[in-house]
């Protein structure tokens, strides 16, 4: 019974398999109907819906629950298109249109040799990684939290994009050394810095005036490797249309006061995150409340 429940849970493997079948069989001109329907269906996922609505109430102070319910639908709608685009790229190699903002920082990141790319749960990392492979010879290592369901995890691993090295944040000690070597060899390490899952180390921060936790890994890695952190956001603008936003790098200076250096870097990162979320709140695919004060 538990196995069956896990399979059909919102994070279960069944929905990943169904998405793949849908992408392979749905004519593009029927996609808006299919995605509109399934976004509505997934509003039944109580935990995810509540998580998004609580985050929205912090991002948009004074907003009503009814307003946030409709905003939540927009988040689910965007998420459905994004994961659909992701699977379409992986199975059919269909790529979207791209726009670039902050091109000089994007170029600088690729040319300098060794950097940490800090991003959020927005857009699709497979599409983003493809973009890197098109524009650069550098290797990119993506660090992410593993899927909760082991079968979903195995499914995602078996359908991962060629040329993209994915590491999971669970094996922290050996991974830290690997990533340090990757940066010193001129590679780019991409990490999602807007959510802490499991038992990974964390740093305190503030987002929209509410306390939050960010993973300590990217900041510690940047300090150890003496590499800058580039905030990069992959924003979905519309159907098969994405914008890659690269911001000014965050430098972590090694001083006697490590905590102060980390606090400054975290403040710079959360400020960038706030700026992007203020205009693109419907792109933040964080289905859990980000702040402990907003459980």
């Amino acid at each position: 019974m538990t196995r069956l429940r896990d399979r059909f849970h919102a994070r279960g493997v069944f929905w990943r398999e169904l998405l793949r079948i849908g992408v392979l069989n749905t004519p593009p001109w029927l996609e808006p109907i299919v995605i509109g329907w399934w976004s509505l269906f997934f509003l039944l996922w109580g935990a995810g819906r509540r998580g998004v609505m609580r985050n929205l109430s912090v991002i948009k102070p004074g907003s009503t629950a009814l307003g946030n319910f409709f905003r939540c639908y927009r988040v689910f709608w965007n998420y459905a298109w994004t994961i659909g685009d992701n699977v379409r790229f992986k199975t059919l190699r269909v790529i979207p249109d791209w726009e670039f903002v902050g091109w000089k920082y994007f170029e600088e990141m690729q040319s300098r040799g060794g950097a940490v790319l800090l991003t959020a749960h927005m857009g699709s990392y497979d599409l983003g990684a493809h973009l890197f492979s098109e524009t650069s010879k550098q290797t990119i290592v993506m660090v992410r939290a593993p899927e909760e369901d082991p079968r979903t995890h195995a499914f995602e691993r078996s359908h991962s994009t060629e040329g993209l090295r994915i590491e999971f944040s669970t094996k922290s000690t050996e991974l830290a050394l690997d990533l340090l070597h990757a940066i010193r060899d001129g590679g780019i390490v991409a990490i999602q810095g807007d959510r802490v899952t499991g038992s990974i180390s964390e740093l305190p921060g503030t987002l929209f005036g509410a306390p939050m936790r960010v993973p300590a890994g990217p900041f510690a890695l940047a300090m150890a490797a003496r590499a800058p952190i580039y905030p990069v956001f992959n924003v979905r603008l519309g159907r098969r249309r994405y914008r890659l936003v690269t911001r000014e790098p965050i430098e972590i200076v090694r001083t006697a006061n490590r905590d102060e250096a980390f606090a400054q870097a975290v403040a710079a990162w959360t400020s960038e995150l706030e700026t992007i979320l203020r205009s693109c709140w419907y792109q933040w695919f964080n289905f859990e409340p980000f702040s402990p004060e907003n459980p």
């Binding site: 593009p28 029927l30 996609e31 808006p32 269909v94 098969r240």
Partner: peptide, 24 residues
Amino acid sequence: VDRIAHALDRDQSAVENYAVAIWF
């Protein structure tokens, strides 16, 4: 924006696909 890239795919138009979906 700084730079743009357009994919040449016959299903790339949002206006066309939304219009046909709504009409259908």
